[in-house]
Amino acid sequence: MVEDLKLYGTSACSYSLRIELALKLKKIPHDYIEEDLFNKSPSLLKYNPVHKKIPVLVHNEKPVAESQVILEYIDETWKNNPILPQDFYERAMARFWARFIDEKILPTAQKAIYLEGKEREVMIEEVCEQMKLLEKELDGKDFFGGDGIGFVNIVGNVVAFWFRMKRELLGSDQVCTPEKFPSLSRWIGNLQEIDVVNECMSPTEKHLAYVRSRIEDIKSAPK
């Protein structure tokens, strides 16, 4: 049976790029459909009527939404080059840290961007405390969860971007420094040495524009 696999995403969004990275790591042929998030296609709305968001993976006309759910689906469907650990406990820990990144670190970092003054300082301090927990988990390791790139590294690649773009996003170089976070800094360097990771990075200005547009949406949303 010929596989029909399509990924609906946008190259400015880290959630979309993590799916592209997983597919490339597993060498899975697929069609990529770039979405305009300000003018969403009828296909995207059909395949993800609940959240109406990217990414959406459509496998033989069966849609799967939400990036971490998609990553697990890919890993369970195509067994080569596994991205989740085979040990059940390590797999549970990978899910834990991936959710910590998406549910704790990223929302706090977003708040730090759109708040100002003292409120921003409080959020910056909070995200630094959260990053310390990641730093501790990574201590002495080249990658999260093992010797190579896997589930947490794929999800956490967005943290690497925010770490590098701290001045553009937060107006300061002093938030996440190599001195404060030596293990995370080394991990980012390790990621940058992997060709397929670099292939799945959004151009900096395009990603910054996307992040800023999302922040403006948050600021203008009804309170």
Rank of each mutant, 00 (worst) to 15 (best):
D102W: 07
V197E: 04
S202V: 10
I149C: 05
N198E: 13
W162V: 12
M201L: 15
A109N: 06
G171N: 05
D102P: 06
R91T: 02
V196Y: 05
D142Y: 02
K141Q: 14
L138D: 04
E205R: 12
V122C: 08
E125L: 13
G150W: 00
L170A: 07
E121Y: 11
K111T: 11
V159P: 06
I188N: 11
I105Q: 03
E116N: 12
Y89G: 03
A109S: 15
K136F: 13
T177H: 10
V122Q: 13
A109D: 02
V159T: 07
I113W: 06
A94W: 02
F100R: 02
N157M: 11
V159R: 02
G189M: 04
K166P: 07
G117N: 11
I124Q: 14
L134I: 08
G117D: 12
K111Y: 09
E125K: 15
F163P: 01
I105L: 15
R99V: 08
A94T: 05
G140R: 12
S172K: 08
P107W: 06
K136G: 09
R99W: 12
E90L: 05
W97T: 01
L184Y: 04
L191Y: 04
E125H: 13
E168V: 06
T108R: 04
A92F: 00
L84E: 04
C200L: 07
I194P: 00
G189K: 14
E121L: 14
V158S: 12
V197A: 03
G189V: 05
R167N: 15
R164Q: 14
S202W: 04
N153M: 00
T204A: 13
R120D: 03
F100N: 07
I188R: 12
W97V: 03
V152A: 09
V155F: 10
Q86T: 08
M165L: 13
V175K: 07
M165I: 08
M131N: 10
L133M: 15
S185M: 05
E199C: 10
F96C: 10
E137N: 14
L169N: 03
M93L: 14
K136H: 15
V158M: 12
G117Q: 06
A94D: 01
N198L: 14
G140P: 03
E135P: 04
N153Q: 05
L191C: 08
F96T: 05
N157R: 08
K166T: 14
N190Y: 05
L106A: 10
D142C: 05
K118W: 09
Q174E: 15
A160T: 03
D142E: 10
P107Y: 07
L184C: 06
F163E: 02
L115G: 05
E137P: 10
R186A: 13
F88S: 13
K118C: 09
P85L: 00
